[in-house]
Design a protein around this nucleic acid. Sequence first.
DNA 1: TACCAGGTGACTG
DNA 2: CAGTCACATGGT
Length: 230
Amino acid sequence: MNLRQDRSPNETDIRALYDALLEAYGPQNWWPGDGPFEVIVGAILTQNTSWTNVEKALEALKSAGLWSIGALHETPLDRLAGTIRSSGYYNQKARKLKTFAELVEAEYAGNLARFLALPLVDLRPELLAVWGIGEETADDIVLYAAGHASFVIDGYTRRIVDRLGWRVDGEAYGDYQALFSDRLPADARLFNEYHALIVRHAADVCRPTPVCEGCVLLATCPTGVERIRR
DNA sequence: TACCAGGTGACTG
DNA sequence: CAGTCACATGGT
């Protein structure tokens, strides 16, 4: 949306963004969840929802004794929905949790670790086949619960990429993902930290109305330069 | 008071 | 395939 000509970033640009964010904010130590089960539930509950609202719902699930695949599977939809109320879209999300639990119960004997042990090429498609799990949620789970190098693209990532004026070959999830995946080694630790840093930067600085003064990316950001000049 | 938040699926042309 | 809409709470 900036007035300059977009250009495709090269490997140096992609690495420089990571280095600048890491230098500015330090390691983020994501995912903010304790173990694969919490990562998965959190990934579903945080869809288009602030993490603070999700935290309340996670605590409510624990307090209600609904902290297992089996419990999600067996608990009536209405009770589950009421328990996760604070995360918003609670009817839809309750259905999503139950649909995922149903898969693990039916195909993996309720053994989450066994499901997550699938190779990446099988795990990601299996997740995408679950009602309520789209590309970002699948990659959250693949990366932060299973530890595979699948780069996560979210609204924050798109916003930063767009403001930096980086040309993307389309608007689809995979188009943004390729921007990073094609220019980085497939390293889960790197992808993990990179996405966490993007979230940190977008939430604190590159907000809907950006706080460009003092931004560590200002020197290379057309949007920032344009805003500061006025 | 609107707007925003770590999206997804259903439906339409 | 791209655009539009429903889904919903809590913080600023």
